[in-house]
Computed example of a mutant assay.
Amino acid sequence: MENLIKIINENSAFIIIGLLVIVLLLLIMVLALMSTTKKLEKKYRKMMRGVNNKNLEELITSKLDDIDKAIGKSEEALNKCEVIKEEIKGCVNKVAIMRYKAFPDVGSDLSFSIAILDSYNDGVMITGIYSRHDSTTYAKPVDKGISRYELSEEETYVLNEAINKK
């Protein structure tokens, strides 16, 4: 123990200089860290200040509220689309037409048959027969792709063509 104290006394100048160097290095490191901390604090305060004197938390909260509103509106729009999709099935969306010559003594394809159906194959078959002396138009209801009235060959063809449309 006495040897240790003797060595410390003999080298006390070097030990003090070494400790001063270490303290000086630590002081420089503390100043550098303080400078970096100040820069970070400035950036943090600027970020937290936000836009129009709103802080970041208020800004994020308002944006999250906007997102929730947008999600609600998109869900509402999807629900309305489903309702519209079901309603459209009842609208006319299948049409087929055929022109033909009903009688051999008539010069052109002036007679016609037209099928007008919805997605459930409900609708109407309209046929116009043209001859030299008169013209007659028939309307036949169609229910689920079937008419309760007898259909001609042309009407059957047009009805099947309309039913097979997607």
Score class of each variant (00 low, 15 high):
62 S>K: 06
20 L>V: 15
57 E>C: 10
32 A>T: 13
52 N>W: 04
33 L>C: 04
43 K>A: 08
37 T>P: 00
65 D>Y: 01
32 A>C: 05
17 I>M: 09
40 L>G: 11
59 L>Q: 01
62 S>W: 07
22 I>E: 12
67 I>E: 03
15 I>E: 00
72 G>A: 14
28 I>W: 03
33 L>A: 07
64 L>W: 01
63 K>V: 15
59 L>R: 00
40 L>E: 08
47 M>V: 15
19 L>Y: 08
35 S>F: 14
42 K>G: 02
71 I>K: 10
67 I>G: 01
17 I>L: 13
31 L>D: 03
68 D>N: 10
40 L>N: 13
14 F>E: 14
44 Y>W: 13
43 K>C: 01
44 Y>Q: 12
31 L>S: 10
72 G>C: 10
51 V>N: 01
59 L>D: 04
50 G>I: 05
67 I>N: 03
51 V>R: 02
23 V>K: 04
48 M>Q: 13
17 I>F: 11
53 N>P: 00
26 L>M: 15
15 I>M: 02
71 I>H: 03
23 V>P: 00
22 I>F: 14
25 L>P: 00
28 I>K: 03
49 R>K: 10
35 S>G: 06
42 K>L: 03
68 D>Y: 06
36 T>H: 09
70 A>W: 00
67 I>Y: 07
60 I>Q: 01
59 L>A: 05
35 S>M: 13
29 M>V: 14
33 L>N: 12
53 N>Q: 12
37 T>W: 07
57 E>K: 14
39 K>L: 13
35 S>C: 04
25 L>T: 03
22 I>D: 08
71 I>P: 01
45 R>S: 15
65 D>V: 02
49 R>E: 12
39 K>P: 00
25 L>V: 09
27 L>V: 11
17 I>C: 07
49 R>T: 08
23 V>S: 08
60 I>L: 11
59 L>H: 02
35 S>V: 14
45 R>L: 15
64 L>S: 07
49 R>L: 13
45 R>T: 15
33 L>I: 07
71 I>S: 09
57 E>Y: 14
53 N>D: 15
39 K>W: 00
18 G>Y: 06
54 K>D: 01
42 K>C: 01
16 I>L: 14
63 K>G: 07
20 L>D: 14
60 I>E: 03
44 Y>H: 11
32 A>R: 12
49 R>Q: 09
47 M>T: 15
66 D>W: 02
70 A>Y: 04
69 K>I: 13
40 L>Y: 10
37 T>C: 05
43 K>T: 07
39 K>M: 06
43 K>H: 03
20 L>Q: 14
59 L>C: 00
64 L>R: 06
15 I>F: 04
71 I>F: 09
31 L>T: 11
45 R>P: 02
72 G>E: 10
14 F>V: 12
48 M>D: 13
21 V>P: 00
52 N>P: 01
31 L>N: 05
17 I>R: 11
14 F>K: 08
54 K>E: 06
47 M>R: 08
66 D>R: 06
61 T>D: 06
18 G>Q: 09
